[in-house]
Design a protein around this nucleic acid. Structure first.
Length: 920
RNA sequence: GGGUGUUUAGCUCAGUUGGUAGAGCGUCGCCCUUACAAGGCGAAUGUCGGGGGUUCGAGCCCCUCAACACCCACCA
């Protein structure tokens, strides 16, 4: 027997260990392969709501397919997350008054590896807590030996084919991290700034041209002023020279179509080394690129002495002040502009000319685009493919070098003359390029963008470039489960590299789930202080601990107070423990096709109740079956209820299969929830009670026991992918009673729908029975008749089928509607004053006796009559429309006619009853 | 500027080829009823964002407007 109360904490503890230790997570080696690659979380990270949500969905798919007999692999692993991880450890050093530059590259890397080894287990421990059935024996890390080998292989090959090149380009430079970042790692935000109108005088000594700029400090890098070629104000000036203020340089006026004459003055200063637009224009006009900044965004020695070494924003103030003194500022306008910031550091990005490595993506993008266009790779929901197309059709070369230490070091070597050699390692370089052993070579200092190794994840984890058995079996993988925020960062690049290096799609389907937000629709973030740790939902947490967690280690400590206040308001008692299964089930029900998902504690609370419901239903079943089960052959007869619940269950299984096939976890979960609670518990269990308690020798108790246990056992299997722990715990007790042996539910087959089990007559009978019971309960409820009070019921005016059914099912009627007695009235019997309900033609009377208030019943009837009248009006109106009668399909018209007749008949009866009771 | 979404009950959301508007939570009654008070039974609640169109019929299809959200892009 199960414990009296459902306690997730104790039952979740045992099972994961057991599953893992018995190798249940490893591929079976039998059946069609089914493989999902985990989007590798940052190795030093910790689980957040998004992870837990995503991993739950993957685990549902994995457990479902494993039970369906697939050879299932959920490949697990973590990412080295270059910038993010390096930043964490750098911050630690700073706290110790150290810096990576002081301790040096080697010591710094040692330090990160040490940190990785200490905290790298966090995320995997947490994965276990949510029940993720990943194959731990195959765990990988993007910086491990095998994956590094794959990275080098890819780099060398792409370089050889000319698809990776090195060049001095304008890139997004993060002056705080002192590294280049890709376009995707830059986030632009609107900010209030100014537009400065500056005079650029003619060298002749009088007059000037006024240019408008948001970045006056870059004036030192100006190499031209551009105007629109058709602009009548400036046409005559094209080709003339201007005096660049604060300098002794002269720069030309040039003409370019891209200039908007309506903006500012129609004159634009051109700074090719510090602006992407100007860079392109510079290229068009063969202008020099004049870099005026150092790597930390201070001005370099290309600017006048007075400004050298100043930070760009200090320099700005200085330039404005000096221009003002020279009366060269015409005016200043407030202006809203986009400020580019690094997504990690938050530093304002500076376009800077540096030597970097790039992937030439155009040729890689073409097949990747086609793979989605022709449906070889499907996005679910489908509209995400549009987002993918938009980006891929306008794709720019990818800057892959990072001036960091933590990552895959670029396999390129330089000699003193600056020649570049690319190969697997230095020895190979010397062989490949036939270099003398004595020629000094130094390796490129830079590492690769983290996403470069992530792009190889689907095949590098399986052993590529070796043609391993794993790779042969599980590649291409079946589905990628991820958020839309990394479609460009990751999904697109996996498709490009997958097609390039394996000639196959890395996955068949990309399922894009929504992003979790807090209950107010805000993104969960540390600075907002609204983060919820999924583990705290499982175990619970008290308010002080929650506040401590949310305010600890804030980048902006001044936010702590506000966070404490909102947290206290929102969770005055902390967060109660809900258990893993309730959390997982909640994630499933939240996985609609919506883009953003608001996480509300109410939902998880409801689902903990669902767990409890299931638990108690199982207790009821066990209580009535343990020690009382024969095998199926001893069952003499099946009741209508048995046949009904079996039949209804088939539909549910079918629905679940359909919904999971379409990645509608919400609908699948909903279908199971509804059946479990609203059919199995609310009706079937209640219907078995009179049978199980009956003293009658010929009763169908054996059939009820058998049905109770077999349906429950199947429900557990069907629910297992959603709620692995509770289903396993219950199943252990239930399975033996239903004649099933097995060590664990997770390796049992997933229940399948069977058409032969459909029983339409039983379904119709039980639907009828339900409506009679509901009608009586409605009267009872409306009249406030307490459940303990049994009532007499009179039936009147029904057809022969009603009579048969009432005869057959009177025991159920009495039990579920709490009847004291049950009689048929003949047409000429006198009817006592009574409350009335209708089910089809059948009239149900509950005599007023002392328990029903006459006026209340009059009100109730009148309400009912009003409702019917409205419906009748609608039906009449439709049928009086000749267009409808002539054009609508016959069955729709017939249905409307039937409705009209039914409403009319019902109204006649109810009105009669109303008169009777008024006159009584 | 380009693109993609969202708008349905008090709240959070379903609504699958157009055919009688649903769930959970909350609210309001009556109940400790031998699985479950983490529960049972009953009830109330919607001009499906606005306007137009197609159709016998629109929450669903088309057009348009509005609000909100997100993504991409070089307006100095």
């Amino acid at each position: 027997m199960l414990e009296k109360t459902y306690d997730p904490a104790t039952l979740e503890k045992e099972w994961y260990q057991y599953w893992e230790n018995s190798g249940c997570f490893a591929p079976s080696g039998k059946g069609k392969p089914y493989c999902i690659m985990i989007p590798p979380p940052n190795v030093t990270g910790h689980l957040h709501m998004g992870h837990a949500f995503q991993q739950t969905l993957m685990d549902i798919l994995i457990r479902y397919h494993r039970m369906k007999g697939y050879n299932t692999l959920w490949q697990v692993g973590t990412d080295h997350a270059g910038i993010a991880t390096q930043m964490v450890v750098e911050r630690q050093l700073i706290a110790e008054n150290q810096s990576r530059h002081v301790i040096g590259r080697e010591a710094f890397l040692d330090r990160i590896w040490q940190w990785k080894n200490e905290s790298g287990g966090n995320i995997t421990r947490q994965l276990r807590r949510i029940g993720a059935s990943v194959d731990w024996s195959k765990e990988r890390f993007t910086l491990d030996e095998g994956l590094s080998k794959a990275v080098i292989e890819v780099f060398v090959q792409l370089h050889q084919e000319g698809l990776i090149y090195r060049g001095k380009r304008l890139v997004n430079w993060d002056p705080v991290l002192k590294t280049a970042v890709s376009d995707l790692e830059v986030e632009s935000e609107d900010e209030n700034g100014s537009l400065w109108y500056i005079h650029y005088p003619f060298p002749e000594g009088s007059g000037s041209v006024v240019v408008a700029t948001t970045r006056p400090e870059t004036l030192f890098g100006d190499v031209a002023v551009a105007v629109h070629p058709e602009d009548p104000r400036y046409r005559a000036l094209i080709g003339k020279m201007l005096q660049l203020p604060l300098t002794d340089r002269l720069i030309p006026v040039i003409a370019d179509d891209s200039i908007d004459p309506a903006f500012g003055t129609g004159c634009v200063k051109i700074t090719p080394a510090h602006d992407f637009n100007d860079y392109a224009m510079g290229a068009r006009h063969s202008l020099p690129q004049l870099n005026i900044m150092n790597l930390d965004a201070t001005l370099n020695d290309a600017v006048p002495k007075a400004y050298q070494g100043l930070d760009r924003f200090v320099a700005r103030e200085r330039v404005i002040k000096d221009l003002n003194a020279l009366k060269l500022i015409e005016k200043i306008e407030p202006h809203i502009l986009k400020i580019p910031k690094g997504d990690r550091s938050g530093a304002i990005i500076e376009p800077l000319l540096t030597d970097q490595w790039f992937v030439k993506v155009e040729t890689l993008a073409k097949p990747a685009l086609e793979a989605v266009e022709n449906g070889n790779i499907k996005f679910v929901p489908d509209n995400w493919s549009k987002t993918y197309f938009e980006w891929m059709r306008n794709i720019q070369d990818w800057c892959i070098s990072r001036q960091l230490w933590w990552g895959h070091r670029i396999p390129a070597w330089y000699d003193d003359a600056g020649n570049i050699y690319v190969a697997k390692d230095e020895a190979e370089v010397r062989i490949k390029y036939k270099l003398a052993a004595t020629l000094p070579l130094r390796q490129d200092e830079d590492v690769l963008d983290t996403w470069f190794s992530s792009a190889l994840w689907p095949f590098s984890t399986l052993g590529w470039p070796e043609n391993t058995e794993l790779l042969q079996t599980f590649y291409p993988t079946q589905v990628l489960v991820t958020g839309f925020d990394i479609i460009f960062f990751w999904v697109a690049r996996m498709i490009m590299f997958g097609l390039k290096f394996t000639n196959e799609m890395p996955f068949e389907t990309v399922y894009i789930h929504g992003l979790i937000q807090d209950q107010n629709g805000q993104k969960m973030s540390k600075t907002k202080g609204n983060v919820i740790d999924p583990i705290d939902l499982i175990d619970g947490i008290d308010l002080p601990a929650l506040i401590q967690k949310r305010t600890y280690g804030l980048m902006q400590p001044q936010l702590a107070k506000a966070i404490e206040a909102t947290t206290s308001e929102e969770f005055p008692n902390g967060i109660p423990a809900y258990g893993t299964d309730a959390l997982r089930f909640t994630y499933a029900t939240l996985a609609t096709s919506a883009r953003f998902i608001r996480f509300d504690l109410k939902r998880i609370e409801g689902n903990r109740h669902f767990c409890n419901k299931l638990w108690n239903a199982a207790r009821f079943v066990l209580m009535n079956t343990e020690g009382k089960m024969g095998d199926e052959s001893t069952v003499k007869s099946w009741s209508t209820a048995d046949n009904w619940i079996v039949s209804a269950w088939q539909r549910v299984k079918l629905a679940v299969e359909k919904h999971l096939g379409e990645y509608r976890f919400d609908l699948a979960a909903q279908a199971l929830y509804d059946f479990t609670w609203n059919e199995y518990c609310d009706w079937y269990l209640e219907l078995t009670k009179p049978v199980l308690n009956s003293m009658n020798e010929n009763s169908t108790a054996a059939g009820a026991r058998f049905t109770l246990i077999t349906i429950l056992e199947e429900m557990l299997r069907a629910l297992h992918p959603f709620m692995p722990y509770i289903t396993e715990a219950i199943w252990q007790k239930v399975a033996p009673l239903s004649g099933i042996s097995g060590k664990t539910i997770m390796l049992q087959p997933y229940p399948e729908s069977s058409v032969e089990c459909h029983d339409l007559k039983a379904e119709a009978d039980i639907e009828w029975l339900k409506s009679i019971i509901l009608a009586i309960r409605n009267i009872r409820g409306e009249m406030n008749v307490p459940p303990s009070k049994r009532v007499p019921v009179l039936f009147f005016n029904g057809n022969s089928e009603d009579q048969t059914r009432i005869k057959n099912y009177s025991e159920w009627l009495s039990a579920l509607a709490k009847l004291e007695s049950l009689h048929w009235l003949k047409p000429d019997d006198t009817r006592p004053p009574a409350a009335t309900a209708l089910v089809g033609d059948l009239e149900i009377l509950i005599p007023l006796g002392g328990l029903i208030d006459k006026d209340a019943e009059i009100n109730r009837l009148q309400k009912e009559i009003d409702k019917l009248n409205k419906e009748l009006e609608k039906a009449k109106q439709k049928l009086s429309n000749t267009n409808f009668v002539e054009n609508a399909p016959k069955d729709v018209v017939d249905q409307e006619i039937a409705r009209q007749l039914e409403f009319t008949a019902s109204l006649a009866k109810l009105n009669g009853r109303l008169e009777e009771i008024k006159n009584s």
